[in-house]
């Protein structure tokens, strides 16, 4: 047989197999046990540990309240278009309620309107949705959490000196709030502390190089703040590579094995953890309540905690930390 035909046939065969597989999967999702209420959660991403915890919380709530929950997020965290596509698909399935963590609230505007017209209640979670459609928001108060981080930083460096910030990105609500909450606290309460640089980088490898550049430019730097796991890991590795452990106070955000190890070894002073598990759980819980016609609070604070060497093994904290 002609070589070209063999190639073409095998290509078609592979494509058909893949297509059949994906149809198989999605049809499974689309017919979630006919009688149970179906709650769809659309997050900003799914790769990150944080989202996996949110998902775990949501799944626990699904078990507890006997509902079907699906959890999907953008392939690349921050890809607005992908997320909108996911939301559109989910709305077309007519779920009982939708949980949504917007990457870009503006872009989601028309779909929020569609949900409203179709009478599908929307529960915002994590960074929330800037729209009047969502019935309620289950999230960490990031401004307050960042202020808490700033308070600890100020105490650690003795209320005076130079510090710098590495923020995971400059466009998302969490990025902006964790920057502004930290900055505002310092400006209001700590006149002798000077923020010398704010850089944006959430990739651990690149954040390492960013942190090293900041430290090189400011030899008298006393503290560095990393606004999420990636940024904080970057700071930790920079300090390790430069061999200046102890000269700098490091305050981080979220968790992950690297941060936990760094805190246990004293390299990092402490960090703020959100309650991702709680975010997932509370979102589903609120959705269930709404589908039953019960009323819920407009803002559900899912909480945050400061953790350091002293309380890291406390079961109340350790269950919130992911490795």
């Amino acid at each position: 047989m002609n070589k070209h035909i063999v190639r073409a046939v095998s290509a078609v065969a592979i494509a058909a197999t893949v297509a059949a597989g994906s149809v198989g999967c999605s049809s499974k999702d689309e017919t979630p046990g006919n009688t149970k209420p179906y709650i769809a959660l659309i997050s900003k991403g799914f790769k990150h540990q944080f989202w996996q915890s949110v998902k775990a919380g949501a799944e626990q709530a699904a078990k507890d309240f006997d509902v079907t929950v699906t959890f999907e997020g953008a392939q690349e965290e921050g890809n607005v278009e992908q997320q909108i596509q996911l939301l559109q698909t989910v709305l077309d399935k007519k779920p009982s309620a939708v949980g949504f963590a917007a990457i870009d609230s503006q872009a989601a505007g028309p779909l929020m309107q569609q949900a409203k017209n179709d009478k599908i209640p929307v529960i915002a979670f994590d960074s929330g949705v800037d729209s009047d459609v969502p019935v309620c928001t289950a999230s960490t108060d990031n401004l307050a959490a960042a202020a808490e981080a700033a308070k600890h930083m100020a105490e650690l460096i003795g209320h005076e000196g130079k510090i710098a910030m590495i923020v995971h990105d400059q466009t998302s609500v969490t990025g902006v709030q964790r920057r502004d909450g930290f900055k505002a606290y310092m400006e209001k309460n700590e006149p002798k502390i000077k923020i010398v640089d704010i850089q944006y980088q959430g990739d651990p490898l690149k954040a390492t190089d960013v942190a090293k550049a900041i430290i090189a430019a400011n030899p008298d730097l006393k503290g560095l703040y990393g606004s999420n796991e990636g940024a904080a890991i970057g700071v930790v590795h920079a300090v390790q590579e430069l061999g200046i452990t102890g000269k700098l106070k490091i305050v981080g955000f979220d968790s992950g094995k690297d941060q936990i190890d760094a805190i246990k070894s004293g390299l990092m002073s402490g960090a703020i953890t959100q309650n991702p598990y709680g975010i997932g759980y509370e979102t589903v819980k609120a959705a269930v309540a709404i589908t039953k016609g019960q009323s819920v609070a407009k803002n559900i604070d899912t909480g945050f905690f400061w953790y350091d060497k002293t309380n890291i093994d406390d079961p109340k904290i350790s269950k919130l930390l992911y490795q």
Partner: peptide, 20 residues
């Protein structure tokens, strides 16, 4: 532009950033 740029540790840092 910066007194801290041309230091051994910063130059090594540049090489490390360029490595990968």
């Amino acid at each position: 532009a910066s007194p801290y740029f041309f230091t051994t540790s910063n130059l090594v840092g540049i090489l490390m950033a360029a490595t990968v």
